[in-house]
């Protein structure tokens, strides 16, 4: 039992890295994803095409391969980051495609009349997006975004294979050292993941309710 408690406290420290990775890439992918969604509906065709190619390519590639290309491909062209930064980049590039598609769905759900009203008072395209379209689009897609970010939380475990000492990587080490309590270590890790994911779910439900009240 003491052995397991020791393992769990090591694990919890590793979860701090998991959470850092998750929160930072969540914020970055939200920014990149919203920008991408805005470009996807822009009147400038090359912008639309560029985003469309990016989304289709990256969204349909296994995350592990996105990691491979980032971690091993970028150094070949002279880009050298820490493993943590590479992981952040890979997770952001991948998750942003899902955010972009979700936000685009939100944009399409906005009544065309509101966009016409916004244009008729003389707002430019960018202003219409910034003040009328995106605030409503993002609010309406809070529930599907919650799923995307919970997936991101669990996807961050792939970083364990690419030199980042997050929860799964530390769990693997612990399993090798404490070979008599393998199942307990895995069970404990899973339990922490589930508990944290439930917590995120709660936070998003709260956010969803707040977004709704403002209507």
């Amino acid at each position: 039992m003491n052995e397991l408690m020791g393992v769990i406290s090591t694990l919890l420290r590793a979860f701090v890295t998991t959470l850092e990775l998750t929160f930072l890439s969540a914020i970055l992918s939200l920014v990149v994803g919203i920008l991408a969604a805005a470009m996807r509906v822009s009147p400038v065709p090359p912008l639309r095409w560029a985003v469309s190619v990016y989304v289709r390519l990256v969204r349909n590639t296994p995350l592990t391969i996105v990691f491979f290309i980032t971690v091993f491909g970028l150094p070949q062209v002279g880009v050298n980051f820490s493993f943590f930064s590479f992981a952040l980049l890979a997770l952001t590039l991948y998750t942003a495609t899902f955010v972009a598609e979700t936000v685009r769905a939100g944009i399409q759900a906005i009544p065309i009349g509101q966009i016409e009203a916004a244009r008729s008072i003389g707002l430019t395209f960018t202003q219409v997006l910034a003040y009328v379209v995106l605030p409503q689009a993002v609010r309406s897609v809070v529930p599907p975004l919650a799923s995307t970010f919970i997936a991101l939380f669990k996807n961050s475990s792939i970083a364990s294979a690419f030199g980042v000492a997050e929860a799964i990587s530390v769990m693997t080490n612990m399993v090798n050292v404490h070979s008599t309590i393998v199942l307990s270590i895995m069970g404990a890790t899973a339990a922490i993941y589930v508990a944290l994911a439930l917590l995120f779910g709660r936070a998003f439900t709260w956010l969803e309710r707040k977004a709704l009240i403002a209507r």
Binding site: P111, G113, Q114, E116, A117, A118, S120, V132, P135, Q136, R139, A214, R215
Partner: peptide
């Protein structure tokens, strides 16, 4: 312009 469906910004 004033529209048939009002088109106020709902947020």
């Amino acid at each position: 312009m004033v529209f048939q469906q009002f088109n106020l910004f709902s947020h």
